[in-house]
Design a binder for these strands. Structure first.
Lengths: 225, 225
DNA sequence: TAGATTGTTAATCGATTAACAATC
DNA sequence: TAGATTGTTAATCGATTAACAATC
């Protein structure tokens, strides 16, 4: 009913708020103001309140936000107040690492299946997770009631596999392939573009180095004069 | 000299342009218009031209952009027209995967050292890369002339290790720890927040599912009436 | 030449920040 | 009560899109 589209920027900040609240909670704090949250995350109190009020009124004037309440609300907003079943498609080095990455389990994401085309892997278990043949994808996905697919196949087959997943009615793809998937709106997609991130890091690294160089040249000039 | 600060948004699109150009090049294409680039990446020709002109004039009226020229320019802008030496700090499952991730080598990022506190790992090699003790960090970093540090330590020690790297004069940290590093401007930092990305994916997945539910309810109602 | 397409200036749109009444 | 802090409206800022003269 109330179709108020919340900006992507706002959504992407919600996990940051949650992590900070978890932090405070661990330190025995039980309430917090928008100003404190803002300071911790390097933003403004205005933005924090603006973000939160996109979803509801969780605070109290003169008091701030109850950490328990706000945590619960954000978890509800993101939908992480329940658990999900995850499959990893493509067990290369990255897929393998994600199979063993314990953090996911902690947040309620249960990795329950892996898929690959390598006969040496099919039928084995990694970290107690069975590896199936790509040929069994349709069957296993249904049987295992997979919610989220992690796409760690090679770049060459990414688009094809993604389209197949779409046809199978998958609702979420976590895409590590660095390929822009051509897929309908009905599938949620988040991209982890490692190489792109590394390129951006390189840009800022070099910019810093250039700045330092310019600075030291200026200093040297000053000494010479 | 010409201090024109280019927006983060623009920087983050440069790798996308480059990937698309590489794609075209592979298919034997040798020129492209801003309109074609925009269509491929789902943006506008205006934005493409605006982005590129932040760095220079690489196109020609009535013709478009030479793919070879533009590729070279973007590589120069990002600083990826040379090679870099990379160390991976923290050889857990994720660090291990990144050690074996061949893609980096392809783009000129040579992983030449790993660091851990685990005595069973120290002194061994993974994928021909030697694993050193964290105690030797300062020495090896200097000896091996490391440009970029990949931070894959446990969340608990992230801030501490990052501060140490800063003191060692490291110029770039690729941070996979999901911790906000408290570090000066002189170090370039890019964060890969896997859990945050997974939360955002979960949000959009659930929103889609809700939409579908609403839709089917409406359809059912229509049938009933 | 005519058509195509750039680089850039101006217009629009959206997101961030500031301000403030409401009230705990 | 007085001080603190929210939720929201208005003002500002920045990024995206549109328009167009320049020109290949």
């Amino acid at each position: 009913m109330s179709i108020k589209p919340v900006s992507e920027r706002t959504i992407s900040r919600m996990p940051k708020y949650l992590h900070y609240l978890n932090n405070l909670k661990e330190n025995g704090v039980d309430r917090v103001s928008s100003a404190s949250i803002a300071e911790a995350l390097g933003t403004t109190a205005s933005q924090v309140r603006q973000d939160l009020s996109a979803f509801g009124s969780y605070g109290a004037q003169g008091y701030g936000y109850s950490i328990d309440r706000l945590s619960a609300e954000i978890k509800g907003i993101l939908g992480i107040d329940t658990s999900y079943r995850v499959a990893i498609i493509g067990i290369g080095s990255l897929g393998h690492a994600l199979l063993e990455h314990l953090e996911f389990e902690k947040y309620g994401y249960h990795v329950v299946a892996g898929f690959d085309i390598d006969c040496d892997l099919i039928g084995t278990e990694i970290n107690h997770v069975p590896i199936y043949s790509m040929d069994d994808l349709a069957d296993v996905m249904k049987q295992q009631e997979i919610d989220i697919c992690v796409l760690t196949v090679s770049r060459g087959s990414a688009k094809q596999v993604a389209s197949y997943l779409e046809r199978l009615g998958v609702s979420a793809i976590w895409n590590f392939t660095n390929e822009k998937l051509e897929i309908g709106e009905s599938v949620a997609v988040e991209n982890i573009d490692l190489i792109d991130s590394l390129f951006v890091l390189t840009y800022y690294m070099n910019r810093n180095i250039e700045e330092r160089l310019l600075l030291s040249q200026r200093q040297r000039r000053r000494v010479n004069i």
